[in-house]
Design a protein around this nucleic acid. Structure first.
Lengths: 227, 227
DNA sequence: AACAAGTCTTTTGTATACAGAATATTATAT
DNA sequence: ATATAATATTCTGTATACAAAAGACTTGTT
């Protein structure tokens, strides 16, 4: 529908559809519980049902949609329980990543981390900043640490877990005071990683996640009951 | 081809194909690097290309096959690096699972664990035992602990990570002396969990994984160079 | 007016058809 | 005989067609 559906690379259509639908789900344009009807989606996106179906298969495996036996796909509803489950796993793996990053990051990795951190700060201090750009900068910052672990699988799993909570990121970053504390948390983490102090970095990252959990908790409580 | 392709439940064909192909890959019937040609597979399984393609999409997302840009799918080759990556993540999550299981397991969970442990021992002590049944018993044992965490996501990720190494499980369990030490490790773990001693259980599970890693390492070294 | 049965529509699940790209093959020239 | 170019084949990517099942709607009966 929108003009940004025409992703002008040469990707298989299933990938294009997959990315488009995923973004729509994560941004909340497709709401939890909403049915994904193949013909309608195919029509909107200007493709046939085949790539739509394959994209749905991928989204299903990623946990963003669930299949009802003979009723097709619908956007997965995230319960608070599931969110806690995700965060529990994520905390553990973020801590692992912190340790391993401290062990294995190269100097270039360090440089990339500092640059990403600076970029995030630059955006975050602006009281009227673009939230989309800010979430992307946050993701980019954490990605530099993930990459520093030199563990592709860990990278992939963490990226996926983070994605599960994307819908809440916007809420999360709206608050300017939260943004400020985020910036200082990032700086602390960077110092610890730069000093290759795994113990400290792991502890800081753990707190970082705990803080996120608190905010998300509150955010969920405030939007109770929309089914 | 084989007579067990006709899985007689009412599942979508894509699921049947998915399960069939996955089993074939994990058992090594489809070897790493082997191409998965849609028409050939569809013919063999007596279905059309559509469910085969959707199954491949699922396998791709599970990491068991990789897509070459315009050359279709092939069974993923597991490099030693990737295996180490998987084990690093897995160890961290197994330890998390041990802690949480100690906190959260109900008495029924404990009972299920003890029964699964006993079943595994029964099979393992038989010097001429069925390896397939044994791997299944091992999986069942660890599953009781995963389930005890009450964390579905953790469960799912651990099950997936374990699957990545399935091809090596058979090698692993062939050796009778290894089976013996496995039994005693399981018993130790059970005692720790039953006592809800998270610290101890986590340590033991960590060693359990380390031991696995050593054996798999050796197993890979011995089959060096089959591309 | 309410409930039940039957029909109709919608939608999924599956099969097949068609086009374009990549590789293998063959023929030709040096 | 070898290398290169042209041709043929194979396979993927995509679209469309068809059948069966689920759900919605209508109509008839009590």
């Amino acid at each position: 529908m929108g003009p940004d559906n025409e992703i002008n690379e040469f990707l298989p259509l299933r990938e294009v559809v997959f990315l488009t639908l995923r973004k729509a789900i994560l941004k909340g344009e497709l709401q939890p519980g909403e049915r994904l009807m193949e013909i309608a989606l195919a029509g909107r996106l200007g493709v046939s049902r085949t790539p739509v179906r394959e994209a749905i298969r991928m989204l299903e495996h990623e946990g963003l949609v669930v299949m009802k036996p003979r009723r097709g796909a619908q956007v997965a509803k995230i319960t608070e329980q599931e969110l806690n489950d995700v965060l529990e796993v994520r905390k553990s793996l973020e801590i692992l990543a912190a340790y391993k990053a401290c062990e294995r990051m190269t100097e270039e990795d360090m440089k990339a981390m500092r640059e990403a951190g600076a970029e995030f700060r630059k955006l975050a201090v602006n009281p009227r900043c673009d939230l989309t750009a800010l979430t992307e900068a946050d993701v980019a910052f954490h990605d530099t640490i993930y990459r520093g672990t030199q563990n592709r699988r860990l990278n992939q799993i963490l990226a996926n877990l983070r994605e599960q909570m994307y819908r809440f990121r916007f809420e999360y970053l709206k608050d300017a005071s939260i943004r400020e504390s985020l910036v200082s948390e990032h700086e602390e983490i960077m110092r610890a990683v730069a000093a290759r102090d795994g113990e400290l970095a792991a502890g800081l990252i753990g707190e970082h996640i705990d803080n996120q959990q608190k905010v998300i908790h509150a955010s969920i409580a405030s939007m109770e009951g929309e089914n």
